[in-house]
Nucleic acid binder design. Structure first.
Lengths: 215, 215
DNA sequence: CACTTGTCCTGTCATGCCGTCAGCTTACCG
DNA sequence: CGGTAAGCTGACGGCATGACAGGACAAGTG
């Protein structure tokens, strides 16, 4: 699946090369967590990795290219989010638990990768295809599962016909992502994180089933 | 309220000065719509405005500073979003209409200012206080009105006690903002914009009232 | 052990943007 | 008309970018 790792000028990277390449990615990742995207410079990343800017350019066309790489690695991990919904029930009490666990897992994932996800979000919003395809890849697992759940309830007549499962699922996922990105905003707004989660779970439950949860 | 407009080195700006200042802001705004935030350079903005980089630095400390200025002007306009909710009813049929109009108005506002709002969102997510205070200022009108609506229904016993109005309102607003930013994502996902709106309105209605709308 | 081969890294360079300052031009006012 | 403050810019040192050629290094070969 993953073709050989190659340098910009076409050589195949060996053990040592892949190591420095990865180190550069790690340092870039760290850099993104501590300073604004706009101010992340190749030279800083290189210095942090104990190497030179020229080395960076051997492995990546630019900062954006490297970010895409990191995001791609993360997307693989993001596929694991499916487990939050695989085989879960959306009926009765267990639906409430499913909602809670989804919110929990999703927020945790986003918090863990917030720095890189910010950049992906920006790129996607700016209309860069590479970024929004990546964003879809990351969110697909959750999105599809949610849409399936809605569609299934709809087939059983428990959800109105005129609901569009994909639209509702997408909106809910977008909500979770946005809230995760701006948790600090909520805090300075008088909403504690502990209070936030159940309310998000409530909205998810309402969105999927159309009913209030039975707790 | 608004103190005199001043240059970076303390002079007060006259008519001509304010004009070039505004021209720089307009050009920056345009620039942000057409190229990624990371690639917007002072020199390009200056060139587009038919002036020199030095002039830019006379009025703004850096690109970020100028963006804050633009966003501030927009925040004033954002206060007008309150009208989407002022004096509206959240009972019966009119609740459904209120939801629809809120979604419509909000998406329109976001679409109109998407370039600058992307940057504000990024700044806020990165934890920059100036940006997330600004973001709150923009969203406050809608957010407060929504929270009030929920609190009111709660007081009447129509919404569960354990719902946190501020949390629900914040999450719904975040959802609308996120969906507006990533509409293209939805399209390439098989959801048309026309289908999207009613589903968003549905989620808003569910979130505020806890019930399905009566149409 | 020399020799070869291909990977890996860096010194160096031209280019271009950043951010500042001194100094010039323009407008206003008595 | 002269004084004063606003308004603008050329020019400059400093730094990041991105490309290249060449040197260091590891591994295999005879």
């Amino acid at each position: 699946m993953t073709g050989q790792v190659r340098t910009v000028d076409g050589r195949v990277a060996g053990r040592r090369g892949q190591a420095t390449r990865q180190k550069l990615l790690d340092c870039l990742s760290e850099m993104l967590s501590s300073s604004p995207y706009r101010d992340v410079k190749v030279i800083d990343v290189a210095r942090k990795a104990g190497t030179s800017p020229a080395t960076f350019y051997q492995y990546f066309p630019d900062v954006e290219g490297a970010v895409l790489e990191i995001a791609d690695q993360m997307a693989a991990e993001g596929a694991g989010l499916t487990e939050l919904l695989q085989g879960r029930s959306w009926v009765g009490k267990s639906a409430w638990q499913t909602s809670q666990e989804l919110v929990d897992g999703f927020l945790e994932f986003w918090r863990k990768h917030d720095a890189i996800l910010r950049v992906v979000d920006l790129g996607a919003a700016e209309g860069d295809k590479r970024f929004y395809k990546l964003r879809m890849k990351i969110l697909n697992s959750v999105n599809n599962s949610l849409a399936d759940a809605v569609a299934e309830l709809q087939a059983k007549g428990k959800v109105d016909k005129d609901v569009n499962p994909a639209a509702v699922a997408g909106a809910l996922v977008a909500m979770l992502a946005a809230v995760a990105s701006h948790q600090k905003g909520f805090q300075s707004w008088g909403v504690k994180q502990a209070e936030l989660k159940p309310n998000l779970a409530l909205l998810v439950h309402l969105g999927v089933t159309g009913k209030k949860p039975t707790k």
